[in-house]
Design a protein around this nucleic acid. Sequence first.
DNA 1: AAGTCGTGGGG
DNA 2: TCCCCAAGACT
Length: 358
Amino acid sequence: MDASSDTTGTTRIAQDLLGWYDTHGRDLPWRARPGSPAPDPYRVWLSEVMLQQTTVGAVKAYFAAFTARWPTVMALAAAPDEDVMAAWAGLGYYARARNLLACAREVAARGGQFPDTEDGLRALPGLGAYTAAAVAAIAFGRRAVVVDANVERVVSRLFAIDTPLPGSRPLIREYADVITPDLRSGDFAQAMMDLGSGVCTSRSPRCLLCPLSAGCAGRASGEPERLPVKAAKKAKPVRKGRAFWIERELGGEAQVWLVRRADKGMLGGMRALPDDGWAARADGCGEGPASGPWDSAGKVDHVFTHFSLELSLAVYLGGRFEGAEGEWWPLDRLDEAGLPTLFAKAARLALAAERQDA
DNA sequence: AAGTCGTGGGG
DNA sequence: TCCCCAAGACT
């Protein structure tokens, strides 16, 4: 592998990759058009936070909705918490939305200008090592070593690093630093993303399309798909829980009882159906917010990062229920409540059961 | 520093 | 179907 630098600190790898990026890079909504001025830091930051552990395909609609509704960081900072949480519903990892708002408000307090250095960005809520480096490089033209899962995979293969992740991270970062150019390090980072996404993919890398294949040690090994080596993962337990669908009619309007979940923990800060506490314990206790009588509306299966959930749905119609903390929400505007996917599934189930009864 | 945090798509 | 995984951050 030729990692030697020319006088501008650009390796052969960076030259080849940037050349490929100029013709094969993806055209994405948060990227500046070729030849246009530097991208808006707000849009770069927003896209990077949305893209944390999330696919481009899932992010596009959310990015469009957020930027249409809140065109600037000042506008976002002024938004009510519940509007932003509801707008994030379905995208997952809801701590990101809480940190997003906290960050927007810190930036607004500085007059709406993001810090323009990696260290300054790293101090903001929700910006870790990766995101701070990415924003510094892409939005502010700083040289920064941007390491995400794509870079880990590409670098592991380029240099045939076969020590398992996460132990290999320090070494991967060293190599990433060596091949990162002084100029265009933001484009270089995005080129690595595009390469990792479309060419140097996890399962079956398309080495014939790769601009770096000639010098790739993983390619030379004959089994690039074997890299990066990863530590074995733990088995995913199954939890059981109950959620409760409490419906009433008031003035001809059907309503359902929704609660807001605690800020910390699973689905934190999101609107939800009342449940029996399955998130905090191994299993839920089965107890509901009222004595019932409950009818069963069936079951919802859902997979989280570290466990699977079998959620049974109990329905209570037409009672005089009045909970302590929560709100009656009109059924015909349920899509605006911003339920995370688990509870959106449960709501679909409850409504389907009602239609069957009717 | 390992565990906690969603979700949907693809092989 | 099942398993893997994706532009990670936070504790």
